[in-house]
Design a binder for these strands. Structure first.
Lengths: 245, 245
DNA sequence: CCAGTACGTTGATATAGGTCAAGAAGACAG
DNA sequence: CTGTCTTCTTGACCTATATCAACGTACTGG
């Protein structure tokens, strides 16, 4: 389901909906460019929808205003892997290449600020600060990818799952800083299914389930229900995640 | 072994040694900035030397003129993982953050063009084209990291090893385009030990050895000696690497 | 309230790859 | 050439995780 964004299609709601401006602004490091508003459209996607298809040519460059998106890759025999999980203010699509390396699928309902790749790139080219900021973002993404690389390459199942929980908790808190909630809350409600966690960590859903079970039994977390846990011992959880005995 | 690069320390050989200028020029997408020559020094590192240490603060930003560097991460209990293998024209160090996330170790002897992180960043800031080019490079690195992520998460040992061989072969050919050698040559001499390959692919050296053995028996490659193979059936090798039965 | 469906848990069993150990093959110094 | 060191290969065995299967639980629509 490719998303074509024509220039004339500018959605007037953008001008009146602070959510989208806020997301774009955050994504660009507090920098707000009026030119971008002019070429931005915004779209809603329901959970489970595919935004971009692997291998497909798409001119979409999007910034997530709300919701969670997974980037997945499918091997010829059906094995699947999630290479990245994106949320508020994260970017979908490559400024340089139109060919998408991965499927972008909505984990939850998603609000997306859409730009035409080339138009966005033009603006980037003419705004050094913006380019510099994007460089910083991609650098952070690369660092995060490398962190997961070591996890997938060298960590045990429980360590991976612990790492995933810590990571989710950090993500929550990061967004809390933007839109403060109860910061000390150890409750974590996550939108991912066991299978999604497994596909992200290179495990099977059964193993993920067992590992969460083990962390619960060991009193590191409390499993309130399938999609909601409470962190009981954050330090211990971090130690497990870092393979720090 | 942190590398301090003072402004006055400019190595005059830089002006006379085309290798270094060539590497920098390639790294920056054919763009050559005279300002960079002014702040560049070059250094030689022997195989096995550590250029930057994990967790250490270093102001080095380097471009590899020749040789191979591995970026490794060490877990508290000694498990190790190689997150990236770098060669000619690749960059070491982060423009933004002084703290290094990984060890940079020389796999072979290395010639490095060194810059002071902040000085380099200043020049990047004032040259939009350069910033844009770096963004493109990091984007490619991110894409490559994600490719390995799926490999580590979902591929079998033989598939990983096949992928590694194909990747090495591509790397060779990429560099051939710069300094043309026998392009049709199916011979591949690689500088990595079995342990390094294993640490990169999230396997053990024994498994790597067995997988190479299997590819040899299956007549996909010929193992000439421990560090030299001949690719017999590139298509088949690619199929295995892509998990394409 | 019930049937149907999707998702999660738990148990039994299989297996890919890890671990341990012994040789073989180079590389290098004397 | 010979002994020492390192790296690679090969074999035997073991374990973490995958696989297969059964059962629970929790929404959903009638």
């Amino acid at each position: 389901m490719p998303v074509a964004v024509s220039v004339g299609e500018m959605d007037l709601r953008c001008a009146t909906c602070p959510v989208h401006h806020h997301a774009v602004c955050q994504a660009l490091g507090g920098l707000y460019l009026h030119e971008l508003a002019g070429i931005m459209t915004h779209r809603h996607f329901e959970a489970g929808t595919e935004i971009v298809h692997q291998g497909e040519t798409s001119n979409l460059f999007g910034i997530i205003a709300s919701g969670v998106v997974k980037l997945t890759r499918l091997l010829p025999d059906g094995r699947q892997h999630i290479v990245c999980l994106l949320s508020e203010t994260d970017c979908i699509g490559d400024v340089f290449s139109a060919e998408s390396h991965d499927n972008a699928m909505c984990v939850t309902d998603v609000e997306l600020c859409c730009f035409h790749r080339k138009q966005f790139d033009e603006i980037v080219k003419s705004h050094p600060t913006l380019g510099h900021h994007l460089l910083q973002r991609v650098t952070v993404d690369l660092e995060e990818a490398r962190q997961w690389l070591t996890a997938l390459g060298r960590k045990k199942a429980v360590e991976k799952v612990a790492m995933f929980i810590v990571w989710m908790w950090n993500e929550e808190h990061e967004h809390c800083l933007h839109a403060p909630r109860r910061v000390n809350d150890m409750m974590l409600h996550f939108p991912f299914s066991r299978e999604e966690i497994a596909d992200f960590l290179g495990l099977t859903l059964e193993t993920v389930s067992r590992c969460i079970g083990k962390l619960d039994v060991d009193r590191v977390i409390t499993l309130l229900n399938a999609k909601c846990i409470e962190i009981r011992d954050l330090d211990r959880l971090r130690q497990i995640a870092e393979s720090d005995i």
